[in-house]
Amino acid sequence: MTSVLAGRVWSVLVPHHASGARFARHQLARTLADRIRPDFLSDVMMVVAELVGNAVRHARPLPDGMIRVTWQLAPRRHSGTVLLRVTDGGSADVPQVRTAPSDALNGRGLGIVAALARRWGVEPAGSGRCVWAEIGEPDPG
C-alpha cells in the first residue's frame, strides 16, 4: 500500500480485499481532515468506501492485485469539490444504480454514490476500468 501526494492530488494503492475500503477511508481522512469541513469529509469517505467496496465485490484487481484510489481537491476557485477515482481490473458488468428491495442486504452502493455526488461515471482505464465521482461541498446553511 502506497500513498503519493502531487499538489492537491493523492493516490493510494489498496488491496483488492474488504480491508481496502477501510484503508482508503483512513488515508483520505488523514489527508483531507484539515482541508475540508467534517460533514463534507464524511460524505467523501462514504463515497470512496462504496466505490472501493464495489470494486472488491464486482471487479478484478489491477495486475498487481491492487485497486488504485485517487482523490483531488478542486483548484481554489472551485473550492469545495473533491474528485474521486477508483481504478480496478474491470469486469464483464457495467456499474449501474440498482433498485434494491427494502429487505436486501446489498445493492445500494451506487445509489448512495449518486445521491452524494454531483455526478459520477465509468470510463476505461488501460485494461481495466475507472469509476469516478465528483462530490461537492454542501451549502453551509
Rank of each mutant, 00 (worst) to 15 (best):
T31K: 14
E123P: 04
G7P: 06
V48C: 06
Q27C: 11
R57I: 00
A74S: 03
A115E: 00
V82Y: 08
S42K: 15
W10R: 10
A55Y: 01
A133M: 04
S19D: 11
F23N: 07
R37S: 14
R22Q: 06
F40R: 07
R8D: 13
V44A: 03
A18P: 09
G121V: 13
V94G: 04
A33Y: 05
A104M: 07
S79G: 04
A104Y: 09
V97A: 04
M1W: 05
R57C: 11
E137N: 03
A125N: 04
V122E: 09
A133P: 06
R108N: 13
P140V: 14
I112P: 00
P124W: 02
N106F: 03
A59D: 13
A114I: 10
N106S: 12
A21K: 06
V131M: 12
E123Y: 02
R85T: 01
D39M: 09
G20W: 00
L51K: 08
S102D: 11
R77E: 14
P138H: 00
S127G: 15
R30Q: 06
W132L: 02
P95D: 07
T81I: 06
S19N: 06
I67M: 12
S11V: 00
H78I: 09
P95T: 02
P101S: 03
A33F: 13
F40T: 01
G141T: 14
W10E: 09
P38K: 07
W120D: 15
V44H: 12
Q72K: 12
L62Q: 12
A6Y: 01
A115L: 11
L83A: 15
R98Q: 14
M66I: 08
P38R: 09
P140E: 13
G126E: 01
L32A: 05
L84V: 11
V86H: 01
D93L: 14
Q27R: 10
Q72T: 15
V9S: 12
A29G: 10
D139T: 03
V4S: 13
S3N: 13
A74D: 12
V47L: 06
S3L: 06
V82T: 13
R108D: 09
